[in-house]
């Protein structure tokens, strides 16, 4: 009889198993994404489902995105003012708020809010459909689940999340403006001019590109986790949790990579 493996060997085996599991998941997600593009480019298209997805991902996310951006912009203005006063740099509040919101906080916060609100909702809905055999029913009704469920949602995410990011940027700057003018004594016209003059086209472009990437990640991961859901309520719960976890981590990773691509010196 062979001896039981030693602790280091077991630890190494565990690590190897985890790495293999991660690689397998990356492979499955990549295949899922490729399948999305293949189905996106071939008919039939489900216009009604696309319009519904636009509404639920875009329109219904406006309140949470708007409030998050506004209060973050306001808090950012207070922090920069307080921090800047240590080295007599309070005047840069409009510029830093604009730069911080447009380049970084706007896209990331909107992305994470979409992951919390939309990814979880998509994953739970599709997972429930799977558990209750609605996905099987779609197939028997000659309707491909990828075309009917995934393509409309991911396409809507690709279109609407950059718009939400753009809006979040503006509302965030508005939050900073409100705090700057009402609490910190900035002149409104000067605040707006400093914001406008300081921002460059690349700042806005990077923000919107991040929005496209985050929209794709958040909706795709929701659909992926839902489609791969296990059985029962536990399966739906696990799918929902893993969709938000993976979307959030991927959004932050993509943000780091895109920031490097746009602004590395």
């Amino acid at each position: 009889m062979r001896d039981a493996p030693s602790l280091p060997v077991r630890a190494l085996a565990g690590l190897g198993g985890a790495v293999l599991g991660l690689l397998a998941m990356i492979g499955r997600v990549t295949l899922f994404a490729l399948s999305f593009f293949r189905h996106l480019l071939t008919p039939p298209f489900y216009g009604r489902e696309f319009v519904v997805a636009l509404g639920s991902i875009g329109w219904l996310s406006l309140p949470v995105v708007g409030m998050t951006a506004f209060f973050t912009g306001g808090a950012l203005a207070l922090q920069i003012y307080a921090g800047g006063s240590r080295f007599d740099a309070q005047a840069v509040v409009p510029q830093i708020v604009a730069l911080g919101m447009v380049r970084e906080l706007g896209p990331v916060l909107v992305g994470l809010m979409i992951a919390a609100r939309v990814t979880s909702s998509i994953a739970a809905e599709i997972a429930t459909m799977k558990v209750t055999e609605q996905i099987d029913a779609l197939v028997t009704l000659s309707t491909h689940p990828m075309k009917y469920l995934t393509v409309p949602r991911v396409l809507a995410g690709l279109i609407v999340v950059p718009l939400l990011v753009g809006l979040g940027d503006v509302i965030g700057i508005l939050g900073g403006f409100t705090v700057g003018v009402k609490s910190l004594g900035f002149n409104p016209a000067v605040y707006i001019r400093n914001t406008w003059d300081f921002l460059e086209p690349l700042d806005v472009i990077s923000s919107l590109v991040k929005g496209v990437a985050f929209g794709f990640i958040s909706t795709l991961m929701g659909c992926y986790a839902g489609m791969r859901s296990g059985r029962g309520a536990q399966g739906v719960g696990e799918a929902t949790k893993s969709s938000v976890e993976s979307a959030s981590v991927l959004i932050l990773t993509a943000n780091f990579i895109l920031t490097g691509v746009f602004f590395s010196v």
């Binding site: 519904v52 459909m129 209750t132 055999e133 609605q134 099987d136 029913a137 197939v139 028997t140 000659s142």
Partner: peptide, 21 residues
């Protein structure tokens, strides 16, 4: 042709599997 094949079938699922939405 998968669609033509499935078009010949109807199925009643155990839990009905109606689309909630």
């Amino acid at each position: 042709d998968r669609d033509a094949f499935l078009a010949r079938f109807g199925m009643l699922f155990q839990g009905a599997a109606l689309f909630d939405s």
